[in-house]
Simulated scan of single mutants.
Amino acid sequence: MTDAIRRLRLSHVVLPLPSPVSDAKVLTGRQKPLTETVLLFVEVSTEQGFDGMGFSYSKRAGGPAQYTHLAEIADVAIGQDPSDIDRIYQSLLWAGASVGRSGVATQAIAALDVALWDLKARRAGLPLAKLLGAHRDSCRVYNTSGGFLQASVDEIKEKATASLEAGIGGIKIKVGQPDWKTDLDRVAAIREHLGDTPFMVDANQQWDRARARRMCRELEQHDLIWIEEPLDAWDAAGHADLSRAFDTPIATGEMLTSVPEHMALIDAGYRGIVQPDAPRIGGITPFLRFAALAAHAGLALAPHYAMEIHLHLAAAYPTEPWVEHFEWLNPLFDERIEIRDGRMWLPERAGLGFTLSEQMRAYTKESATFGRP
């Protein structure tokens, strides 16, 4: 028996961070410290009484635009069968065709797309990973939130130790400062502190090609799991060249906002680690489309941020991935993900496995409802 979408509720949520954080884009003067994350939540209900929840997000700018765009086109989804996720996706793309098929246009749709996948898995009584076809019940997990550049080396060491004691398996820190020697000193100090613990660094796009080659060469000695975004995110050829030149894997992709942008890496001969972000690429539907192509190309996967979504998608990837741990979104949900033995474990709860908290309601700045109660 077919079903139909009865009601959609959109929420514009502003989540303050406990304290401002800075990566290399701040120290090089390109951005201001990050103080909050803005999210677009979608709650979907059907005629047969099934529900789903999804979200997308933005940092520094774009959150109100996501909310406004989806509010303009959301009524197109009312009455459609929630099982026909790609059909609904295409109808929303056409409803907002004049603003394109990437960036804010699809990041707005992403929140509804995630909610529909959550609903489909809940209706099946399965965790989303099991609905997709899981290859594993847990994924390797690393922490980033303790390694930002406003923190001293001693602070990073303390936070890294706490993360490892909490069961996290790897540590990532930020690099890419104006003084590259400071970067190397910090990396050496943290590597010494961590011993043989898996260790990653992230330059957040702050090197040109010449500096990136020199830094990658210097960093080879530290046995890193990867060097992330050494170049501008859209420099597919540059990232491909680096991925073939060094033993340390190169990772990139978190900033890309469409499947074609990610495919440019593969077309350029990239051999590194891909880091698609489901809310940024436009939802789970395009994420899965690119993941199939990345797996065919033999690329490793380490999705960016949003572990509440990406744990499921990583668990369904053919080769062993990494999932990024950020505790920032914890206040928005009633449940927590189990982390132990260096791994993040799939919840047994259906769908994504999360319900929205009262704190999420308190952080909501505006909301809109479409359809009928």
Rank of each mutant, 00 (worst) to 15 (best):
M53R: 08
M53P: 00
G54Y: 08
G54W: 11
G54P: 13
G54N: 13
F55V: 09
F55G: 09
F55I: 07
S56G: 03
S56L: 06
S56Q: 06
S56V: 05
S56Y: 04
S56A: 15
S56I: 03
S58H: 05
S58Y: 02
K59Q: 07
K59G: 00
K59H: 06
R60W: 01
R60N: 06
G62K: 00
G62Y: 00
G62P: 03
G63Q: 01
G63W: 01
P64D: 04
A65H: 00
A65F: 00
A65N: 00
A65D: 01
A65C: 02
A65L: 03
Q66M: 13
Y67T: 02
Y67C: 03
Y67Q: 01
H69V: 10
L70S: 11
L70M: 11
A71C: 15
E72G: 11
E72L: 11
I73S: 03
A74Q: 03
A74R: 02
A74K: 02
A74V: 05
A74I: 05
A74Y: 05
D75H: 08
V76R: 09
A77E: 12
A77C: 09
I78R: 01
I78T: 01
I78Q: 00
G79Y: 07
G79Q: 05
G79E: 08
G79C: 10
G79W: 09
Q80Y: 10
D81T: 09
P82N: 14
P82D: 13
P82Y: 14
S83Y: 14
D84Q: 15
D84N: 15
D84T: 12
I85Q: 08
D86I: 12
D86G: 06
D86K: 15
D86S: 14
D86M: 12
R87K: 13
R87W: 07
R87Y: 12
I88E: 06
I88N: 06
I88C: 08
Y89I: 09
Y89N: 12
Y89M: 10
Q90C: 09
S91H: 13
S91R: 15
S91W: 07
L92D: 09
L92Y: 08
L92I: 11
L93D: 04
L93N: 03
L93V: 07
L93F: 03
L93P: 01
W94P: 00
W94I: 06
W94H: 07
W94F: 07
A95E: 05
A95L: 05
G96A: 14
G96W: 07
A97Y: 03
A97K: 07
A97R: 13
S98L: 15
S98P: 03
S98A: 14
S98E: 12
V99L: 09
V99F: 09
G100E: 13
R101A: 13
S102C: 07
S102T: 06
G103D: 12
G103W: 10
G103F: 12
G103I: 11
